[in-house]
Simulated scan of single mutants.
Amino acid sequence: MEGVNADYFVRVVERRAGAELRIKQRSAGDVGCVVWDAALVLAKYLETSAFYRVGLHSFTGKSVVELGSGTGLVGLMASVLGAHVTVTDLEELQGLLNTNINDNKHLVTGSIQAKVLKWGESVKHLPPEPDYILVADCIYYEQSLEPLLWTMKELAGTNSCILCCYEERTMGNNPKIEIRFFELLQSDFDIEEIPVDRHDEEYRSEDIHILHIKRKIHH
């Protein structure tokens, strides 16, 4: 970590090929202001998948929407890998998102833009049925589960691949919230967990799970 000024500090994220990503984080603020471990694990998994063509396909030219982007690391990694990315979060996080986009735009080989999105509200301003929907460390508030799942359902087409990464937490209400999330998720989506041995060799943990989620086709 390196100091930037009193308000920001930088997280350097190395890549398999090419220059590192430099992600500014706020030294004070709520959940969206720092790079969480699940975001790191998912970002590095995207790079591994694209680089080695493991399981998924190249991100080149694909449309991607990230939900709850926070600092924007995961969406930035997808755009560096050639995707056309829309990172989304609340109004108060747009400044941080756009700062990180501007700081890393020289690495982007696709495209990236930030848009305001509050879960549970209209997604008409976002690309419809994107190839990939990315969700990192968004399972923590019980009251946000239904709006998040509604948003996922509204965005996802039958061919959309949702990659959801979360850290399993045992404190307080977290286990109950995770159980509820899966109860709600299973009514509309099929879920497959990506084995840990397919995550990045360095950026992995038994407590951090990556899910490959697809919309169920109801006949």
Rank of each mutant, 00 (worst) to 15 (best):
Y52N: 06
R53L: 09
R53G: 10
V54S: 08
V54N: 05
G55P: 00
G55C: 06
L56E: 11
H57A: 13
S58F: 07
S58M: 10
F59I: 00
T60M: 14
G61A: 10
G61C: 14
G61M: 10
K62R: 13
S63E: 09
V64A: 04
V64E: 02
V65N: 12
V65E: 07
E66A: 12
L67E: 08
G68P: 09
S69F: 09
S69I: 00
S69Y: 07
G70C: 02
G70Y: 01
T71Y: 01
T71L: 03
T71F: 00
V74M: 11
V74A: 10
V74Q: 06
G75R: 08
M77W: 03
A78C: 04
S79L: 04
V80T: 13
V80Y: 05
L81T: 06
L81H: 07
L81Y: 04
G82D: 12
A83D: 04
V85W: 13
V87H: 07
V87S: 09
T88M: 13
T88N: 07
D89V: 07
E91G: 12
E92F: 15
E92R: 14
L93I: 06
Q94L: 15
G95S: 15
L97M: 14
L97F: 11
N98A: 11
T99G: 03
N100T: 03
N100M: 11
I101E: 08
N102D: 15
N104K: 05
H106I: 05
H106T: 06
L107N: 02
V108Q: 03
T109P: 03
T109I: 02
T109N: 03
G110T: 02
S111Y: 07
S111P: 01
S111A: 15
I112Q: 01
I112A: 01
Q113E: 11
A114V: 00
A114W: 03
K115Q: 14
K115E: 11
V116L: 06
V116I: 12
K118T: 03
K118N: 05
W119K: 07
G120E: 02
G120I: 04
S122A: 12
K124D: 14
K124T: 13
H125P: 04
H125E: 12
L126H: 11
P127V: 15
P128K: 14
E129K: 15
E129R: 15
P130K: 12
D131P: 02
D131E: 09
Y132R: 00
I133D: 01
I133S: 00
I133C: 01
L134G: 07
V135M: 05
I139W: 10
I139Y: 08
Q143N: 05
S144Q: 08
L145G: 00
L145R: 07
L145W: 02
E146D: 08
E146G: 01
P147K: 10
L149C: 12
W150C: 04
W150H: 14
T151Y: 06
K153D: 15
K153I: 13
E154M: 14
L155D: 08
L155K: 08
N159H: 10
S160H: 13
C161R: 13
C165F: 05
C165M: 05
C165Y: 07
Y166I: 05
Y166H: 11
E167T: 09
E168G: 00
E168A: 06
E168K: 06
E168W: 00
R169W: 01
M171G: 01
G172Q: 10
